[in-house]
Design a protein around this nucleic acid. Structure first.
Lengths: 239, 239
DNA sequence: TGAATTCTACTAGTATGGAAGTATACCAGT
DNA sequence: ACTGGTATACTTCCATACTAGTAGAATTCA
């Protein structure tokens, strides 16, 4: 039986997928906080559906790393692993450096133009808009870099890697300083326009390493949203 | 109720997870071929469990990219997307180059020694063993590179990316020439031992680009195991 | 008072029945 | 022969009932 009250006004797709999308949004936007408990039963009744589609949504979200299902105990919003956040950042830096390297010899004037426009938008949103909006613009910027480099599909994988980091950003509205990132974007485009591969690589590395600079502060502000925080204190675990 | 006939001799964990692991193995090892149909009902009765855990296993495997659930139509073993295989290979090259770059200044004599031993093992298995065994050794080799570079967790992500490519390898026992890969591994270690960063980068790039050389042959041999094959013919889609 | 134990109220996991949707074989009418 | 409608045999999806396992409160006993 279809649920009495449709989940969305335009109920497209399976109920399970709708529940999945809703909860995913709530986690990423921060209205469901790390370590918070989610009961299949409660979620089911709040959405007016049975337990089964909720359960299947939980399985999907657990596969995405957003939920943690502890058998016979409960389901919780996954805390952000500092260790794996650092790892994904490293991967991202490696990939984006490669993209920049591919991009330098083939970038066009139209690309430069488009990137400049995007930076102008970012400047606007950085002061007035919400962090969620800025994240969208930021992703669009990096996606354009990948497309111009001739590897548009790479963005899909990078954005999947970024999910955990974006959770951090959304949670930390105050600590989050978008204007620094905008300046770094501008530095990247400047180097690209000059055709200076070395400078462009340096700029993108500096940009992505900004995350490593901000992270300790954020972790200190929201300590119980994270786990594996020990990698921050003990920089080297060798005795 | 537990299933009458336990799925494994040591029935650890939920039934759903056991079914998931079994099917995953069958797909990767190639006994379930791409585009093959899988019915919830049939799989359930063949494993002597109910449909629900099978269904949940399907959802997990779909999230991993191994199955494709088409609502109300059927569930099929996913064909390998040539486009995304090329993309993940590019990502892998970028990351492993970065790892090599991190590794060169800090590699130890013990690392070299261990890598040489692994290459010796690979040589053995390349002639006598199965491709599945060789893949294990290959993954161990690259994992050691990541560990020695100080980023052990990176391997987990890379191996996840490699799932699709490993399916290709397992399917193509004959086209697959492990001895070439062993020689390339040796070239990498040679460059590392010499402390030659540039040579090491070149060696790892050449090694990983071997996949691009082999892929067209494999796709031609097993055309209906793949999709998005057009990216191979039209190297450039710009008019 | 304190510690071990049982009981109870939860949890996720599984089994089963049926609803909604899809593809295909079949048949009627042109 | 060919097109269009229909019945049927599937499929995945959802709802419900029930099982098994966990955590914590209440109880019992020393």
């Amino acid at each position: 039986m279809r649920p009495l009250i449709p989940i969305s006004d335009t109920p497209e797709g399976a109920v399970s997928l709708q529940v999945c999308a809703r909860i995913r949004d709530q986690i990423i936007r921060g209205s469901l906080v790390p370590a918070q408990r989610l009961s299949e039963t409660e979620v089911a009744s709040s959405f007016d559906v049975s337990r089964q589609p909720v359960r299947e949504a939980f399985i999907r979200l657990a596969a995405e790393g957003l939920l943690e299902i502890r058998p016979q105990r409960g389901t919780y919003v996954r805390r952000i692993s500092v260790a794996s956040a650092l790892t994904t950042r490293l991967i991202r830096e490696a990939v984006e450096v490669e993209l920049i390297r591919m991009l330098v010899p083939r970038i066009t004037a139209a690309d430069i133009e488009s990137l400049r426009q995007q930076i102008a938008q970012q400047e606007d949103v950085a002061t007035k808009g919400s962090p969620a909006d800025f994240i969208l613009l930021d992703e669009a910027f990096h996606r354009h870099l990948a497309e111009a480099a001739g590897a548009p599909d790479v963005s899909d994988y990078l954005e999947a890697l970024n999910v955990q980091m974006n959770r951090v950003r959304n949670m930390t509205v105050r600590e989050f300083a978008p204007d620094i990132l905008v300046a770094q974007h501008r530095a990247i485009v400047d180097a690209l326009e000059a055709g200076d591969a070395k400078a462009a690589e340096t700029a993108i590395r500096r940009h992505l390493r900004q995350f490593n600079i901000d992270l300790p502060t954020i972790v200190a502000s929201y300590p119980d949203y994270f786990k594996d925080t020990d990698v921050l204190t003990s920089h080297d675990t060798t005795p």
